[in-house]
Computed example of a mutant assay.
Amino acid sequence: MSLLPIVLAGAGAVAAPVAPAAATGMGAEQERDGLAALQATRQGRILPLKEIERRVVPQMKGAQYIGFDLEMPSGVYTLKFLREGEVIWVDVDGRSGQVIGRTGR
């Protein structure tokens, strides 16, 4: 999975101007994935990160939300949590918002 430095906000996506991959420290593949994710969100093919977080974070009582990955082209979000020193990964289908997998307690 690649960590994508994308900010997806509200019902749509808010995009800053895209800098060349070398200037951002991203590789060309990460940059392509980031642009694909932004486009998929704008076109309504996947849900925005804020919507995924709204659905999943409240279910993780007692765990600290520490971030996410978004795998493209599958559109699977992986939300990462920390509880009692253990990392928990929750995989979410970006199209439906449904949890499709989880590791940890």
Rank of each mutant, 00 (worst) to 15 (best):
Q43D: 15
V57R: 08
R42T: 06
I46V: 15
G10Q: 06
A63E: 07
V57W: 04
R45F: 03
A28C: 01
M60Q: 15
D69S: 03
Q39H: 08
W89I: 00
A22S: 10
A36K: 12
G25F: 09
T24N: 08
Q43W: 02
E31N: 01
P20D: 06
V56R: 08
I52S: 04
M60V: 09
L47K: 15
P5A: 09
G27M: 02
L8C: 10
Q43N: 15
L4I: 14
G67L: 06
R54V: 02
G34R: 13
P5T: 11
G97L: 14
G85I: 09
I6F: 07
K80W: 00
E31G: 00
P5Q: 11
V90A: 04
D93M: 07
Q98M: 04
P73A: 07
E84R: 14
G44F: 03
I46W: 12
R32Y: 01
L38T: 08
A15N: 01
L79P: 01
K61V: 15
G104M: 04
T78H: 00
Q43F: 02
K50Y: 03
V14S: 04
A16P: 00
E51V: 15
Q59S: 09
G104P: 09
D33E: 10
R105N: 14
E71S: 15
D93T: 13
D33R: 15
Q59L: 14
Q39K: 14
A37I: 10
A11R: 13
A9G: 07
G75T: 11
M72P: 05
Q98W: 10
F81M: 02
D69C: 03
A40V: 09
Q30H: 07
S96V: 12
T24S: 14
V90P: 09
V7Q: 13
L38W: 06
T103Q: 02
P48K: 08
L38M: 14
M1L: 07
D69M: 05
D69Y: 04
